[in-house]
């Protein structure tokens, strides 16, 4: 096995990187792949909470890198899915505890055993970002349909290109169709138009996402949630399947027409 390393990043904080990592990792594992996710946000860890594995942390990423434990000991096995693991971040240290080449070495060790390594990148463009980017084979940029988030995503995409890790793929998170229809929110079309990279997912705004994060159950497990379905679609696309975008998340070119259809169905 030779794992593919996916780094999930955004530039701006609070757009849903960690939620995306948890759901994509869980979704890939649900699909039968062996997945490990790494929380790169040293000092501000929360991937463990979103995955519901908080109280099982003994060792963390920094312990592995500084040789206080073996890699195996820091890997927390998920309770629900057999092949999902988490390497949590240290909470009491900061980004400088890890270097980009540490991350490359760590991922090279993990590559042999897994299909996917998903790295949660911290907000910002400093050391933590470079740590998370160094081992990446593929970069997913998460953004919200909001001008400031899109501006930061644009900056990040430029940096990813500069490091020769591109082209990045785009996930548009928290799209509120009601607001798009009223013209109060950037449309997926607007965002893709500016960023000019390939779209791999549009995640609708869904209360269940927050509920899931708080309960430590990623929404991808919820068969009824539209956001869950959107995440499952992203995973299928990562696996090379050609999944059409959901009605709600129609491809930008078809957006208007399918948006109308959806509105018709809802009424």
């Amino acid at each position: 096995m030779a794992a593919k390393v996916i780094t999930v990043t955004s530039g701006k904080g609070g757009v849903g990187k960690t939620t995306n990592v948890a759901n994509i990792a869980a979704g890939l594992a649900l699909g039968g792949s062996k997945v490990v996710c790494i929380d790169g946000d040293i000092g501000l860890r929360n991937l463990d909470v979103v995955l519901g594995l908080e109280n099982r942390i003994v060792y963390d990423l920094v312990d592995v890198i500084e040789g206080r434990c073996r890699l195996r000991q820091a890997m927390i096995k998920d309770k629900r899915i057999a092949d999902l693991y988490l390497i949590p971040a240290a909470q009491t240290r900061d980004k400088t505890a890890v270097s980009p080449s540490d991350m490359v070495r760590l991922c090279d060790q993990l590559r042999l055993e897994f299909d996917w390594i998903v790295i949660d990148c911290p907000a910002g463009i400093e050391r933590g970002f470079r740590n998370a980017l160094a081992p990446a084979d593929m970069v997913l940029v998460v953004t919200n349909p909001e001008i400031s988030a899109v501006r930061d995503a644009d900056r990040i995409i430029g940096l990813v290109e500069a490091e020769e890790k591109g082209p990045a793929l785009l996930i548009l998170n928290r799209v509120n169709m009601e607001m798009v229809k009223r013209g109060d929110m950037l449309t997926p079309d607007d965002v893709v138009d500016l960023l000019a990279i390939e779209l791999i997912g549009i995640i609708p705004e869904d209360e269940q996402v927050l509920v899931g994060s708080n309960q430590g159950v990623p929404v991808v497990f919820d068969q009824k949630s539209r956001a869950g379905q959107a995440f499952r679609n992203v995973c299928a696309r990562l696996n090379g399947e050609n999944v059409p975008f959901m009605e709600l998340e129609a491809r930008p070119a078809l957006f208007g027409r399918l948006g109308k259809l959806f509105r018709g169905a809802a009424n």
Partner: peptide, 8 residues
């Protein structure tokens, strides 16, 4: 010959 992105 490329798009100039934010920060460049």
């Amino acid at each position: 010959r490329k798009t100039l992105r934010s920060g460049m």
